[in-house]
Amino acid sequence: MKSVASLTVELDGAGNTVVRQLRSMAPLTLVPRRRGTPATGGAVVHLVGSATSPLGGDDLTLRVRVGAGARLLLRGIAASLALPGHGPGGSRGSISVDVEEGGTVEYLPEPTVVTSRAEHRADLSVRLADSARACFRETLVLGRTGETPGGLVTSTSLERAGRPLLRHTFEPGRQRLRASHAHLGGARVLANEVVVWDRDPEPRSEVDWALQPLAGGGSLTTVLTADTVTARRRLAEARAVHPAGDDLTPVGTAG
């Protein structure tokens, strides 16, 4: 199934963030939940994927634009399962996000579970204006409990004012590579959170997570754990030492 969904939020004259344009296309459904006001914060839109996507053969694209000064929280509702499908080839999900000056976006999807015969590719491309702020989270679960995961490639490209801040391509690879302590160390869950805000953190590291300031600004939190509950806890620990942590939507809070 080929599907293109899009969303644009902008600031209105009263300083509220409003949804200007929204197009859902099955299996990507966008549900506006709250208008953004100066008192409540940003607009909230839920991304509701169908339970059986992405399937092999699916090509799902989401385009998001956040206008100058607007604030958007885009969040997932349930974990998605990357499954083998009846269609040829793997599944692919592409998200592109543009944020204009002074705009803010938070993208907080639920985990993606890579099942045994999946061949999934996820691309995220983010372009930020110089004063834009952003938080993007990704949680990958390599197989359901006891299951060997299929193929997966995730790629994140994040630019600010045309300069690269993060180009992150990750492939869990085969069992031998996943077990290597120089690659995944046998972890089943990988969580990443990139935060580009007006303040950057100092490096902070523990055994299974690290908060890493990026060379060009912003930071990346990397978490490797055995389960999603622990991964969420580690993301929250990294948030707690990030100087902009209080400005962000809390980890694990329903929107």
Binding site: H181, A182, H183, L184, S205, D208, Q212
Partner: peptide, 21 residues
């Protein structure tokens, strides 16, 4: 340069950061 492939290794990143500490 922007199209050159990347290959991240999260466990190695964690080792490098912990070593530094």
């Amino acid at each position: 340069p922007e199209n050159l492939p990347g290959a991240s290794s999260p466990a190695l990143d964690l080792l490098a950061e912990q070593h530094q500490r």
